[in-house]
Design a protein around this nucleic acid. Structure first.
Lengths: 306, 306
DNA sequence: GTTCCGCATGAATCGATAG
DNA sequence: ACTATCGATTCATGCGGAA
């Protein structure tokens, strides 16, 4: 077949891309993370990113773990994650404590202390500021609009590519301005307009800036037949930040497969585990939908070979 | 003297306002909070709001408390605060852990656990999302753009005036409410059995909504020489939320006096303590500047009597 | 093609009532 | 006196069909 030059170039580029991607594998494993993880090699994962079921939440699908049992339930899994993670790897844990008897439960902060005893370094706590948080009104509290994104490491020398998550100055200013509208009138009587204006002038001329440890993102709540714990932007941000192409990502509570789909998009390998058969099936379907094929020998999904 | 009617009314109103304000007292106490607090009556304070010296920070002024000693240093103060706080009162603690050896230190979360053992309820954790956080770049972390605002209470039945801190509704409302469908006019229950439903027509004409537990405010320094720990907006928001007029507010680490100045502005009484003589003097000057006079008998500042 | 607009949805929590 | 269930309240988002 004869192609115009333009088309040949595009075709060749497509082949190159696919050969690149062919290095990646996508394994979707059904079962309890605590035991399934034992089949994964030590020091083999570059990034663990997951959103485990919170205490007593998602009862219909995950059974619900009681707050007072949460730390004991999670620690054996944390131990396996520590084993499979590379020394330069990172573990991002998305979690938030619920209210019990009018108080924030303490299982999350107890978990941090226990994981440090287990040898983890608690490197950082990012905040996910949820723009569209759950509605509701109560006499003694406001709507909960944030979640924790805890960063743990095995060593102080972990891989981090800050330039991969730089934000265009325009977009940043744009979202900031839209966010400002909410709070502008809160600080109406404050005399900090000059301070803000000064900062704005500092940004002029810069095209890309580094983000902070607060991620302001909306939850995905549109009408789909699967519910994701976090929006795609969360794993995307951390995958870009803490991994390179062809690195391996692990999500021990895969859910509807968001982490894996994002890993594929970003040309990384991914291992996902979930205890709910419907979720595992859903992820497999989504992988087939985007053109990956199942490799019987290897027991995992791969990009199509041209 | 003869006044036009208009002026007389304004004059009478001024006297009324000042008589109202005259009920308020402003005490600025020099010394160590741990001992000074013992002179304050039990169950007498409606709101404690403070930003204590963080571990190893502000060394020149406070001497610096080591991270591993922080909890032991703070607990006796927390005990006194619990004693002086009314049963319906609230304690807001602005704090953030610093990074030590590449890790977030754990003294803040250990403090939460210890304070619960002491009898405090950990009601909520607000996030102060600092819009113009400190600039800088490090190889293994981004700029720290948030701080904790921990809410503690003595009982589940504390005073809270949510309407006092309402914020303007988001822009979405303008378009959303311009044309209502049939389902918008009735209660439309959610399909997921959450029990949630909505009647969109309830929102017509609504301009203000309740805020969330994330406060997006710019940092603001009263003066570069004085380390104002937080901007006026922070104490203002919590004073409006957790106190009424003429209530008593306490700041055991007053610094340059931001909490007291805001309390005066909002017509509340205030007690402030600081161990640094220069800060105490500065606050006294600021109180004089806004027209308060020192009452020798009572040992505190008062609004001028007409 | 764009823009407009209807609409379901989301890790929620409290107090009252029932068992 | 305990625990379990139930009704009530609420805001912002982006898909998908219509204009």
């Amino acid at each position: 077949m004869a192609y115009p030059i333009k088309s040949i170039n595009a075709y060749n580029r497509a082949i190159m891309l696919d050969n690149e991607r062919k290095k990646n594998k996508y394994a979707v494993l059904l079962g309890d993370s605590k035991s399934i993880l034992q089949n994964i090699s030590s020091d083999s994962v570059d990034l663990v990113i997951t959103s485990p079921p919170y205490s007593d939440q998602r009862k219909q699908t995950y059974g619900g773990i009681k707050a007072e049992e949460y730390v004991d339930w999670f620690m054996p899994i944390a131990s396996e994650l520590q084993r499979v993670l590379k020394p330069t790897g990172t573990f991002i844990l998305n979690i938030k404590e619920k209210v019990i008897n009018g108080e924030r439960s303490t299982y999350v902060i107890e978990l941090i202390l226990e994981m440090r005893k287990q040898g983890w370094l608690w490197t950082e706590e990012f905040i996910w500021n949820k723009k569209n948080c759950y509605p509701g009104k109560w006499p003694n509290r406001f709507r909960d609009s944030w979640e924790r994104l805890l960063q743990f490491n095995k060593s102080r020398h972990f891989y981090m590519d800050q330039d991969a998550v730089k934000v265009p100055i325009g977009d940043w200013a744009k979202t900031r301005l839209s966010n400002l509208s909410d709070t502008d009138r809160i600080r109406d009587n404050a005399k900090n307009n000059s301070g803000f204006g000064k900062n704005v002038s500092n940004w002029i001329g810069r095209e890309m800036v580094y983000p902070t440890n607060v991620l302001t993102l909306a939850t995905e709540c549109y009408n789909k037949n699967h519910s994701a714990a976090f929006p795609q932007d969360i794993p995307e941000w951390f995958i870009k930040l803490f991994t390179k192409e062809h690195d391996t990502i692990l999500d021990p509570f895969l859910g509807s497969g968001t982490t894996m789909l994002v890993a594929e998009k970003l040309n990384r390998s991914c291992i996902g585990i979930d205890i709910v058969p419907e979720y595992v099936e859903m992820t497999k379907e989504r992988l087939s939908d985007i053109g990956l094929i199942y490799n019987e020998e290897e027991g995992c999904y791969e990009p199509v070979i041209y």
